[in-house]
């Protein structure tokens, strides 16, 4: 049973990533809008010259851009199932609902992580932040933050498949719920970007916090995905 769960998860994620590999639609639109969000912030905050606030601003912009562009990936990856009522076929297939959730979560997270690589470089350039001071910790925080955000996002995006105002609603529903992830990830990143920070103890604390949050969100997501997609 466990073996087939992982097989179906990988099949569903692989299908979404193969479609994306051919069209590159989500990657290009997400990458471009991510670059625009960072640029908008850098224009809007161009007068902020206090060097002490630099790492906090850079980390905040990185995570705000990640959240905004993450909703694009969430909306598009689930939206594909709406075309020709593909969601019906997917739900009728022998794949367990939990595996559908896990597959979508994996696909969305990988797409978001790909765009975050571009984002990190851009933030480093435009905000003069020490983005590669602790590459291992940064990769870990990006991975955990993205997983936590996508874990809630996939549930809401799937539930909004048949709603007419899904684009407007997705962000409105998702952002209040994703605040603990945003808080923890941006504080950890700010500590990492700060060349004057005495030690990485707060980063380790926030990583543990993110890990706990991810476990809770993913378990809750696996639990509620079935009744949510099986609804009217």
């Amino acid at each position: 049973m466990t073996g087939s769960f992982w097989r179906y998860t990988l099949l569903i994620a692989g299908k979404d990533l193969r479609i994306e590999g051919k069209s590159r639609e989500v990657l290009y639109t997400m990458g471009f809008s991510a670059a625009l969000v960072v640029l908008v912030f850098s224009f809007a905050l161009s007068n902020a010259t206090d060097p002490a606030q630099g790492p906090i601003t850079a980390a905040g912009v990185l995570w705000a851009a990640t959240l905004f562009t993450g909703t694009v990936a969430l909306a598009r990856v689930l939206d594909r199932e709406r075309e020709n009522e593909a969601i019906r076929a997917l739900l009728l297939s022998p794949a367990p609902r939990a595996a559908i959730y896990a597959g979508k979560l994996l696909a969305v997270s990988l797409l978001m992580l790909a765009v975050e690589v571009v984002l990190v470089v851009l933030v480093g350039l435009l905000f003069s932040a020490e983005v590669f001071a602790h590459p291992g910790w940064l990769a870990l925080v990006l991975l955990l933050g993205t997983l936590g955000f996508a874990a809630t996002g996939v549930v809401f995006s799937a539930a909004l498949l048949r709603s007419r105002s899904r684009e407007a609603l997705l962000g409105a529903l998702l952002f209040p719920i994703a605040i603990p992830v945003l808080l923890a990830a941006s504080r950890a990143t700010a500590c990492m970007f700060d060349p004057l920070a005495p030690d990485l103890e707060p980063v380790a604390f926030w990583v543990r916090f993110l890990l706990a949050t991810d476990v809770i969100y993913i378990l809750l997501g696996l639990w509620v995905f079935e009744p949510v997609v099986s609804g009217e």
Binding site: A159, R162, S163, L169, I177, G231, E232
Partner: peptide
């Protein structure tokens, strides 16, 4: 405004909100 699955969507939201409070 959640469309046909509004009730399921809102219920899932309420559960995420409840676990979010301590977090």
């Amino acid at each position: 405004y959640g469309g046909p699955s509004a009730r399921q969507l809102a219920a899932a939201l309420a559960l995420f909100a409840a676990v979010d409070i301590p977090l």
